[in-house]
Amino acid sequence: MRRLRELALVPALVALIVLGAFVNENFLSYANIISILGSSAALAMVVLAESLILITGKIDLSLESVVGIAPALGALVVIPAASAGFGLELPTAVGLALIVVVGALVGAFNGFLVVKLRLNAFIVSLAMLIVLRGLLVGATKGKTLFDMPEPFFALATTTFLGIPISVWLAAAAFGVAGFFLRYHRLGRALYAIGGNPAAARAAGIRVDRVLLGVFVVAGALSGLGGLIQTGYVGAINANQGANMIFMVMAAAVVGGIAMDGGRGTMSGALTGVLLLGVVTNLLTLAQVSSFWIQSIQGAIILVALMIARVTTGRAQE
């Protein structure tokens, strides 16, 4: 039953792919499949990050702002002042490292507020979402950053065996996280904490420390997601990542991650990401009327949820 639950979306995904093959002969082409994966890589990293937090029973909405501010700060310390940078012109490697560090620091700060000060995770991260977005607009003066050195785009533009590095990275991250959650003591602890924090504490799990660690890891992953997005788009807009959290939540929850913690798997979350990627691609190839595309996209997600419910016969929480 557990295995069924995590694969609940697969029938819906298969149905969509079959539909896609009929709608456009290029849908199943190698190049198009790579496109779907490449366009989903950034979302996948943030969904992974959010899923880890959701499993522990917390939430972090500010991850979407990390997707913007982390790569932007990394870029600002590298690019010259003439391109709207800080004028520090540090080495590219420092900028790239800073992206992950900024993500981790934001995660640590959120974790501190939620775990140590016992503030409500939803409200705190909502406030942080706004603060970080504002910092990004302030730091860039609202400008779009164009002139980053090539390594900033490398994750999305270089390929290994014909597949973008970003896709390999996301796949590896999901693989490692999935393995940890299923087999490692620390991974199991996340479920225990999400299921019942008091019982987890009684069982000898260092609940606070694990939670703090999860926030830090999630922040760092989102920073990486931001870097992938930067490479994919070729610039950093001051709105980068804005409203992304809705898609992140949709992918995670459609993929079977419980909003109230304790349940969900990485393979499930991954099918959620792929579903959203496939839907966007399919509707574009089908040249659905621009005015109706949003409503159709939403309807397909809704139907996918229903198919998942029927095929597994289990209530979704």
Binding site: N26, A31, S35, I36, A42, V233, A235, G277, N281
Partner: peptide, 22 residues
């Protein structure tokens, strides 16, 4: 051919990417 992208760069990239395959 149309790509509705809501003034968003990532949406434009993903949809153009797919459309050019077909």
């Amino acid at each position: 051919l149309e790509i509705p992208a809501e003034w968003k760069s990532d949406v434009a990239a993903a949809k153009l990417d797919g459309l050019l395959n077909a």
